[in-house]
Design a protein around this nucleic acid. Structure first.
Length: 283
DNA sequence: CAAGAATCCTGAATGC
DNA sequence: TGCATTCAGGATTCTT
């Protein structure tokens, strides 16, 4: 499930591909990738004839520039989306939903079995202003991101910390894996109401997020099942996860048995010793 | 307004 | 072995 580090790996793969030839053809499958108002007016056809340029990332979204800063393609990989390079004579892999063919004879293909991904294209400035990009919270790896940035957006919320971290308007790019990992690193209970945290705990949490995200990017992302980069390679960060998916195993910090939980229909893990509820208020 | 639940989807994993 | 059931997960929409 691509979160910020996995999307960053994909972005870097697209940059490495150095695609500079104009789009000659665009192909879409019959089945739409995402239902909902945000993705309905996709206007993908505007990319035909456009020249690809810079590839950026915002949260979990790839933001691909076309014709300089004029047009853009915004891609969310959902749960199972993969970008890959191919040539026209290669048959489409199953669940291929979107293909851009370029004048140099290469193709970029998007495969997404579960179809939770989404595509949108149009004027780049409009894309940045409107949902989903326009409503995203701060970029955790950008300069200036800190505990105060988190507290400003969630400091009065009664919601559980883990849920707050998954809210893309609070901070962009965090999914369940890195939320769970960061909360453990920060020593904070995942179900502690956000408004109970004091400033020093928000600082710890922000710092922990940056740490787990940076490490995951260095490791090429986390592949639990589906994730592959543009070259088809798996990530290596799954071997470095300290608590995610390890309920019942000993805590890597203190040896206490890690405890699993389900909240809001989403599973998680924490250490009952290192992540006591009181720690958000004390330390 | 806020928060939780339902929804979309398919392959992998589990149960019998 | 094979079939049926369960689950996972992000963002959006619906309900309370």
């Amino acid at each position: 499930m691509p979160e910020l580090p996995e999307v960053e790996s994909v972005r870097r793969g697209l940059v490495r591909a150095r695609l500079r030839a104009p789009v000659t053809e665009l192909w879409r499958s019959r089945s739409p990738l995402r239902i909902g108002a945000t993705w309905r007016d996709e206007r993908l056809e505007c990319l035909v004839g456009a020249t690809p340029g810079e590839v950026q990332r915002r949260g979990k979204y790839v933001v691909w520039h076309f014709d300089g800063d004029d047009l853009g393609l915004v891609v969310h990989l959902g749960m199972s989306g993969r970008f890959g390079l191919a040539t026209p004579e290669q048959p489409h892999a199953p669940h291929t939903h979107f293909v851009l063919r370029f004048a140099d004879g290469r193709e970029v293909r998007l495969v997404d079995p579960r179809r939770f991904g989404g595509l949108r294209a149009g004027k780049l400035d409009e894309l940045w202003r409107s949902p989903p990009l326009g409503e995203l919270g701060p970029e955790p790896l950008a300069r200036g991101f800190d505990g105060r940035a988190l507290e400003a957006r969630a400091g009065t919320s009664a919601r559980a910390l883990r849920d707050v971290l998954l809210d893309q308007t609070v901070v962009a790019g965090i999914g369940n894996i890195y939320a769970v990992e960061a909360l453990h690193l920060a020593g904070l209970h995942p179900l502690l109401p956000a408004k109970r945290l004091r400033a020093s705990a928000w600082d710890r949490l922000a710092h922990a997020l940056v740490t787990v995200l940076r490490q995951a990017i260095d490791n090429g992302g986390t592949t639990l099942r589906d994730f592959r980069d543009v070259s088809g390679h798996s990530g290596r960060n799954q071997d470095e996860l300290r608590v995610y998916g390890r309920a019942g195993a000993p805590c890597p910090g203190c040896g206490t048995t890690l405890k699993g939980f389900v909240h809001g229909g989403r599973s998680g893990v924490f250490c009952p010793q290192d992540q006591r509820r009181a720690r958000g208020r004390i330390a």
